[in-house]
């Protein structure tokens, strides 16, 4: 924009048109556009193509059939069970995380003071270790004669609870894995609440609970909702927790997709599943973002 305004008047109309067609912003965006085109859009198109190919074939873009989708939506098939498990686990994870992360986010902003950066690092630190390695760590912790069970027995108590390879431990793993993704947007959201407003509300007679309900929560909501959306989208695609900690006691949708691509060698069915899940999450996200008017919530409009 700026360089157009500063362009010398002598420039020909053709040059001006070119400059207007490719603004500075657009030119800066070329590298990322190329990367997204090749690395993101192209595979997505391939998956989309496979979803309409003849089942158990590799006839991508050469055949067209809706048979894969018909198989998916056939009630006799158990794919919907996996899908319900994924949604249910993701929703429960989000709900638990919202309750667990809020006090920590509040503490990071208001209570912990100069310890806040250190405590933040503690929550980020596990992200430096591969997720699978961390989950196997939990297996070692909970497994029979593992850290928990062994220690309790050594202390002369009856062994630890047999929680491994259950849906419950899958949920635990997901809450554990996605905590930072809820915590940091939430912390940011709470940081956006000016202290003046809390002081003013208190000065006008409001108690803590009233201030939380009327001022703090609504103003921190953008951060909270972004954290919820982020963790939901990540959690609905989670597989490792169900496989490693859950020991396949339940099958989640992304595990089904993986099986279709690997053991079953049925790429078209896997692609159809991927397309349905993608559209579901994409639609949900767009819906949430359209309802989530950030500018209004931040009081900018």
């Amino acid at each position: 924009m700026a360089d157009i305004a500063l362009a010398p008047a002598a420039e020909s109309p053709a040059q001006l048109r070119l400059a207007r067609r490719l603004s500075a912003g657009a030119r800066c965006a070329i590298p990322v556009a190329l990367l997204l085109g090749i690395g993101f859009l192209a595979p997505l198109m391939a998956i989309f193509g496979y979803a309409f190919a003849t089942p158990r074939s590799f006839d991508v873009f050469r055949s067209f059939t809706l048979e894969n989708f018909a198989t998916l939506f056939d009630p006799a098939n158990t794919v919907w069970v996996s899908f319900v498990w994924s949604c249910g686990l993701a929703l429960t994870t989000v709900a638990i995380l919202a309750v667990v992360a809020y006090p920590i986010a509040y503490g990071l902003n208001v209570v912990f003071g100069r310890w806040s950066p250190f405590i933040s690092v503690l929550f980020v630190f596990p992200l430096f270790v591969s997720e699978n390695v961390r989950l196997y760590g939990w297996v070692l912790f909970y497994i029979k004669n593992g850290v928990l069970d062994g220690t309790l027995k050594w202390l002369g108590l009856s062994g630890g609870p047999e929680v491994l390879f259950t849906p419950g431990i899958t949920l635990f793993g997901m809450v554990y894995t996605y905590l930072p993704f809820m915590l940091f947007p939430m912390t940011l959201g709470l940081a956006l609440v000016p202290r003046d407003l809390i002081d003013a509300a208190r000065d006008l007679g409001a108690g803590r609970l009233f201030i939380w309900r009327e001022i703090e929560l609504p103003l921190a909501m953008p951060g909270i909702l972004i954290g919820m959306l982020l963790t939901f989208v990540l959690a609905i695609g989670a597989t490792a927790e169900a496989k490693i900690l859950g020991g396949q006691s339940i099958i989640v949708i992304s595990h089904d997709i993986e099986i279709a691509f690997t053991y079953s060698q049925n790429w078209p069915l896997g692609s159809a599943m991927a397309v349905v899940v993608t559209f579901f999450i994409g639609g949900l996200t767009l819906f949430a973002l359209s309802k989530l008017d950030l500018d209004r919530m931040l009081g900018r409009r």
Partner: peptide
């Protein structure tokens, strides 16, 4: 919140939402 006094802040501290 239990004083019969009220402060008008420099920032005004109006509730933006």
């Amino acid at each position: 919140n239990r004083r019969p006094t009220c402060l008008v802040f420099q920032s005004l501290a109006l509730f933006p939402h």
